[in-house]
Design a binder for these strands. Structure first.
Lengths: 128, 128
DNA sequence: CGGATGAATGATTGTCGTTCTCAGTATGGC
DNA sequence: GCCATACTGAGAACGACAATCATTCATCCG
């Protein structure tokens, strides 16, 4: 039986308030500074749940830590991410989807999935 | 001054003998079982060197560990990877390169880079 | 060749992100 | 309200990787 706890809701809300990808630890310390007594393990659990429920996207940073971001559920999309500030734009890529399927099929691969993310410096960070 | 040691060569060779992506730890235990006395730290250092020299590609597994694979140096390419056995095919994707640059430019992003990898089940593993 | 030099090695320790443990808490059904 | 039990949270454990540092040995140079 799935229960509704204020902790889960707090994580969901904190994630939604964020423009870009954030780490579990950043979310946790943010919530703590806001006066919450939420535990780190709970943040990890909530994020994993949100991820598997399709309510959050995740990716791994260069340093190997997992970053999360709220996303529009049920819709497949990719991301354009600022290396400097983390600003993220959701992008559609039907052409890339088709290409990935084609490449997989051409090489005899089935059940294709793909990882497609574009990194760069956003307009604001480029100006600095 | 860069030195040539048998350890570095052993890592390079072990990497070349492998069809797919392998972790530093897998390489290390494989070399150890083959009778080498190479240290784990040295394997990590050698792999990092090969990576920055463009002689090896790396990617992060779902579990967060970094996997390495020998590649044709100096050529930008992506990978089609079997989720089951790790078999890897290098793929070219000029169209995707162009698309990534276009998407970045459309959103005001500069210095674009991208992560594009396709996962699936290879023909052999699909048959099992 | 042979000694000097300092880059490379490797056993160990440290770091850091994440997961696990387990006793205590509090949610939802009754 | 009461109970079963899913959830929580502090801390320990874990795993991948980086750093440390005494030792080793490639390379240089006479």
């Amino acid at each position: 039986m799935r229960r509704n706890t204020w902790q889960r809701e707090a994580v969901r809300e904190a994630l939604g308030n964020n423009e870009g990808f954030v780490s579990a630890q950043m979310l946790h310390s943010g919530l703590r500074e806001a006066g919450s007594s939420i535990g780190l393990a709970t943040v990890y659990r909530a994020l994993a749940d949100l991820g598997s429920a399709g309510e959050a996207d995740s990716l791994q940073s260069d340093q190997g830590e997992v970053l999360y971001r709220a996303c529009t559920p049920g819709q497949h999309h990719h991301h354009l991410i600022c290396r400097s500030c983390g600003l993220t734009v959701e992008i559609e890529a039907d052409a890339v989807e088709a290409w990935a399927h084609q490449v997989a099929a051409d090489n005899g691969f089935t059940q294709p999935s793909h990882v497609v993310d574009v990194f760069g410096m956003c307009a604001k960070c480029s100006a600095d």
